[in-house]
Amino acid sequence: MCGPHAAVRSIVGEMIGTHERPTVVDIEAGLEHLSRGTARHVDTLLIVVEPYFKSMETAVRIHELAREMGVPRIHAVANKLRGKEDDEQIALFLKSRGVDVFAFVPEDATVLKAERLGVGPLDVSSSSPAIDRIAELAGKMRTAGV
């Protein structure tokens, strides 16, 4: 129980639980790493999902796990969308499995350029289709007032 994973989880849990200001945690990729310690202190889980079957299936499993753990708000953020058809398919699939899509973020030249350069999208531009959707997401999180 006191291995390196446990230590990381304890630090993350303690920091989230004690810091009184907004906190964003980039958790490990595998859903087994959504530990109870982290889940207990988090009020919102955002599940980033791409418009293809395996990614959507993973999102559904993460959603189920998070719900079992009692995370109060769980939303999907659809990412790398290439058009209206992607938006509709992903919304339809996830809705049928009980997952709410909170934001639709398009594939975006600014994000691709940032990845190529090894910088952040906001270091390339302060506005782009993807950045503007993430800004709306930030606004929604602030309005939720948690």
Partner: peptide, 20 residues
Amino acid sequence: MKIAVAGKGGSGKTTIAGTL
């Protein structure tokens, strides 16, 4: 506001988390 960001590797999870 305590937000965790999850997702498969390569989904853009880190880009979303950091930009948010």
